[in-house]
Design a binder for these strands. Structure first.
Lengths: 240, 240
DNA sequence: CGCACCTTTGACACTTGTCAAAACACGTGG
DNA sequence: CCACGTGTTTTGACAAGTGTCAAAGGTGCG
């Protein structure tokens, strides 16, 4: 049970009945393979379906008129990447694949049907967008009030915890197919400074990072440095 | 019609039927006056009702263990300040009144009933949390990729537009009962630097700011400096 | 009129960004 | 199996933006 990545994700926070699971999975319109670096949702577009990830890493981002990029969210297997487009209509940002991805889409009119017929499931979908917002808030704290080093550490802690929930970690090691440039754009810093921060974490013995494999060598010290508190991820089953 | 601030806000994005309006307003449990600086939702608490503002300015914030504060959202008349607590359960941040406020609350079990019986209204409530998230994203861009001066300008533009939708502006003038310290915490900067940015905007003739009254003297230049694009506020009526 | 809170100023430190080049890694084709 | 090319990571030197500390001015309210 709960083999499907999307169901697995939702089940982290509330029990999803068999009927709801069926309704949701039957709403899926299809799947598609996406190459790394492909932008599969364009800023300014008005999608007629919402997309979730079956595999891979994706990022939501905004470009500024002056040519800078800020990544505003990172998504992993099982995440509903643009569920908000169902109601927001026009995309205020774009989404691209950081690694090769498999995506699945759910047409908006089927989502609407779900909201008409499955109130509890609707609340769970709503909840998943609320968790995205909670992550945004934590990132705001990071960008506004934490040092570059802390903020980078915080992201590594967050990714580790989130990847754990979808079984994408082995011990304290996980694949992170993300360039330092992308990481820098997620943390609102320059590549050079991000790189120096990575090396500082290495020098302190907190992480190992070779190729696209990251290992957290000392979780306690890393979480402490990052002031990481996973409350905002809402990772516990409650009746909602 | 649409006299109630909450209804007025929701009506900006989709038509709310009379029946829905009644359901929503009848769900209100009561109202209360809040003094400036009072924290009326505590971080870590598990509210049993959600609160919206009938009057005044409020802020959502997170404190870091090292004693810093980041304001993650600003709320005005008609905003549903912690609708997300309905599903998120535990507050990952606190909320305080920046000015004297009048609040109203809606018990969560009544919200749940609404989700069981009024799918369209549910979608509109969901949407209002999605707009909050869109604002978070724009703030992320500001904190990550814009200069202090741009970011301050951006906030002034945003507040002006949002206040317009609830008739709280007169021409290009509006009340802003917020200290510079609070503004600094919203922009992730120090008070001193925020103050210098305010003075820079004054020196450039873009704004006038005396006491708690702000006037935007040159909207075009201010919006241009801020790279302000109101798309993310989703201020147009659509069927959702 | 005086107190408390807010705003403003100055001097200086420090984190982070920028520019430019070198080193490295990996996939491709010979 | 090695040379090559492209993209990524790493370095160094320096500039710029922003933070910190401390004190002086303002402003409004009791």
């Amino acid at each position: 049970m709960a083999e499907h990545p999307l169901i697995k994700q939702l089940s982290v926070r509330s029990r999803i009945s068999q009927e709801e699971q069926n309704a949701l999975l039957q709403a899926v319109g299809g799947t598609r393979e996406i190459a790394a670096d492909e932008e599969f949702i364009r800023e300014g577009s008005i999608p007629s379906e919402s997309i979730f990830l079956l595999r891979g890493f994706a990022a939501r981002y905004k470009n500024t008129p002056s040519g800078k990029r800020q990544i505003v969210a990172l998504h992993i297997k099982g995440d509903f990447v643009d569920l908000h487009s169902f109601l927001l209509k026009k995309m205020d940002h774009g989404v691209f694949a950081m690694s090769a991805c498999t995506i699945a889409w759910v047409p908006h009119d089927r989502l609407r049907e779900i909201t008409e017929r499955f109130p509890h499931l609707t609340r769970q979908l709503w909840l998943s967008t609320l968790v995205d917002a909670a992550i945004h808030r934590e990132w705001l704290v990071g960008l506004g009030r934490r040092s570059a080093l802390q903020n980078l550490s915080h992201l590594l802690c967050e990714l580790f915890v989130r990847l754990s929930t979808v079984d994408e970690v082995a011990g304290y090691t996980f694949r992170l197919p993300i360039t330092q440039e992308e990481l820098a754009d997620a943390r609102g810093m320059s590549i050079v400074h991000l790189n120096r921060s990575v090396q500082e974490l290495r020098a302190r013995g907190l992480i190992t990072w070779r190729g696209d494999e990251v290992t957290i060598n000392d979780w306690d010290r890393l979480a402490d440095l990052a002031e990481f508190d996973p409350t905002y991820l809402n990772l516990d089953v409650k009746s909602r």
